[in-house]
């Protein structure tokens, strides 16, 4: 899922200097699961903003609404009433949701309430780690299900660099060396021989190097 973290309430509030009616729009999918922008988190933001304006003796009305997800037109249609009512919108969706809501409700202004960070998963309660970079050319079949593109700082494809020490990456002792993990995993899978196979240079045109990407499915396309 997409992992995001909350912006400081102050940073958001500083962009709401002239507005009297604010709509806080939550998203009930990825950012709800990572406790950044779901229903509760957007309610918390709305409450904090109300307090902020009360302290400044400013009369500001704030409405909060959360939809199932903000990255599809059908779902953000439900926000119409509250967005039409508001002077400005704060979306606690990921960057995709913010862009979708902004496009749908032009010329109303939509501000991001989160910093969208990466595609990952929770590894323990309150800890999320990056797992996929969306390179568009998956190599997990060759690496025992551990992604060297997302989890190796140098995106290496042919084993660890000299900075791998005691299973840790030279960047930080808190970061596991992806290639150590791959080696250990291949051992468990009985596929250690595949470490001897040379991976050829990767085709990065499927990644960001090819510019913004799109996928077209003719069988789904209307």
């Amino acid at each position: 899922m997409i992992i995001a973290s909350q912006k400081s309430v102050r940073e958001i509030a500083d962009n709401l200097t002239k507005h009297k009616r604010i709509s806080v729009a939550g998203c009930g999918t990825c950012v709800a699961v990572c406790f950044a922008g779901g229903e509760r988190e957007s309610e918390i933001l709305a409450s904090a903003l109300r307090m902020f304006f009360k302290l400044k003796s400013r009369k500001v009305e704030i409405r909060q609404q959360t939809v199932k997800r903000q990255c599809e037109w059908e779902f953000i249609e439900e926000l119409k009433e509250n967005i039409d009512w508001a002077d400005i919108v704060v979306s606690t969706a990921c960057g995709i949701g913010v862009q979708a809501v902004q496009k749908k409700y032009l010329p109303k202004r939509v501000l991001p309430g989160l910093n969208t960070s990466f595609m990952g998963m929770p590894t323990s309660p309150g800890v999320w780690k990056e797992r996929c970079l969306g390179c568009g050319d998956c190599v997990l079949d060759e690496t025992g299900g551990i992604c060297p593109i997302a989890r190796c700082a140098k995106n290496l494809l042919n084993g660890p660099c000299g900075g791998s020490q005691n299973g840790k990456c030279e960047i930080s002792k808190d970061i596991d060396c992806a290639w150590q993990e791959i080696y250990d995993r291949l051992k468990v899978l009985g596929l250690l021989d595949s470490m001897n196979e040379i991976a050829l240079p990767k085709n990065w045109s499927t990644s960001r190097d090819g510019g913004p990407r799109r996928i077209v499915r003719e069988d789904v396309n209307t």
């Binding site: 309430v9 509030a13 918390i44 902020f52």
Partner: peptide, 8 residues
């Protein structure tokens, strides 16, 4: 943390 951010 939130209280500090909003000036309380």
């Amino acid at each position: 943390k939130i209280l500090e951010q909003i000036g309380i």
